[in-house]
Simulated assay, not measured.
Amino acid sequence: MTTTTTDVRSPARATDRRLPGAWSIGLQRGALELKQFFRLREQVVFTFAFPVVFLFLFASIFKDDVRGAGITASQLYVPAMMAAGIMSTSFQSLGISIAIERDEKVLRRLRGTPMPPAAYFLGKLWLVLVTGLAETAVLLLVGTTLYDVDLPGGPEKWLTFGWVFLLGLTGCALLGIAISSVPKSGRSATSVVVLPFLVLQFISGVYIAIDTIPDWMLNIGALFPLKWMCQGLRGVFLPESANVLEQAGSWEYGRIALVLGAWCVGGLVLCLLTFRWKNRRDG
């Protein structure tokens, strides 16, 4: 007589075949995004060269000493261009690229996979973090080499740089994701995203010194993160004597943290309310 035994495995001993979590898939998405970005040489050159060229142009045209600030106009442009570079690699880059991916139905196909939706956005955030750091490093190298901008001497200034960079990058990235839902097609994305970014650069102290911009324009610019990123980075890389150029006559680090933090929260809410995986015409 043959005895047949049945191998019954308890749930605790069963092989765990759960899918990877959003965090690990997000890392893989980030690596894929970076690989795709650096394969497009023209895009890489334009992304990193654009603020450097503008810095060189403005710093060469306006290079006299700034009265009462103890700095040159060239030095004033360096942190402002760094802030614009951060917003370019986050707000502008995501606003255009996501709109194009939606128009080409890439988002729709991804939504139909088992991938957690959060992994897609984590991949985009990894992309803007790496490119934002690279952009900032390039501009800082140019500023210290050609325009005598001093690196911060103590940890306090570097800590300030860290939170201004992270809060500014996060807020601008979330705003870029939100505005990607505005264009009706991928072809119109560039116009929809670049125009407000260009206007913000003029009224936020990137191309024009703060003390020469009308107060009503500054008040409008103060509603958005770019103005506060410029101000925070000026406080990090310029001497204390330069704070007389600011609208309030000081760096206002507390207000900078408050506004940038508010944009991180507000940008997240905007994304949750407005983001779409497919175009309006697709239903």
Rank of each mutant, 00 (worst) to 15 (best):
D65S: 13
P116V: 03
G232W: 02
V269K: 05
Q247E: 09
F91K: 10
S191G: 14
S74V: 02
F50K: 03
A257E: 06
V66Y: 09
T190D: 13
L175Q: 08
A73Y: 13
S74I: 02
R41S: 04
L218F: 00
E42F: 15
I256F: 06
R41G: 06
S10N: 08
S88L: 13
W163M: 09
T89G: 11
W228Q: 10
A119Y: 04
Q92A: 10
G153F: 01
L174M: 13
G267S: 10
L268I: 01
V130F: 01
L127V: 02
E252M: 14
Y253C: 09
R109V: 02
L57A: 13
R276A: 09
R187L: 04
I177N: 00
G112I: 02
V265G: 07
L107I: 02
Q28V: 11
L270N: 07
R281S: 14
M1K: 12
V130K: 01
F50H: 04
L260F: 09
P51D: 08
C230E: 05
G205D: 11
K124R: 15
R276L: 02
C264Q: 05
Y147M: 10
I210C: 00
W228N: 08
I256V: 14
L133N: 02
R17G: 10
W251Q: 04
F275K: 00
T47I: 02
V164R: 05
F50M: 15
W251I: 11
I213D: 06
F165S: 04
L218V: 03
D64W: 00
T113Y: 01
L159A: 14
R280S: 12
V106A: 12
A14M: 13
V106I: 15
A22G: 03
Q201T: 14
I203N: 10
G232F: 06
T113P: 00
L141Y: 07
A69Q: 15
K227D: 10
R17W: 00
S10Y: 05
R67S: 14
K63V: 01
A257S: 13
L146I: 02
I98G: 00
L40N: 14
L258E: 10
F37G: 05
G85C: 03
M87N: 07
R9K: 13
I220G: 05
G261A: 09
D211T: 04
R111Q: 14
N243P: 00
L233F: 14
A119C: 04
W216D: 10
I256G: 06
F121D: 00
A80M: 02
G176Y: 01
K184D: 05
V45R: 09
I208D: 00
V149P: 08
M229V: 14
G154Y: 01
K278S: 13
C172D: 09
T170Q: 07
K227M: 12
Q36C: 06
M1E: 11
I86E: 11
T5N: 07
V194I: 14
W228Y: 07
F46G: 01
V66A: 10
Q28C: 05
S181E: 07
K157Q: 14
P79I: 04
G30A: 06
D150K: 12
W126Y: 15
I179A: 05
Q75A: 08
A262K: 09
D282Y: 06
L34E: 06
V52N: 02
A73P: 00
V128N: 11
L110H: 04
L226D: 08
P51C: 09
R111G: 07
D103A: 08
V52Y: 03
V194N: 15
K35F: 06
T4E: 11
L32E: 09
R18W: 02
G26T: 03
T274K: 03
E101A: 15
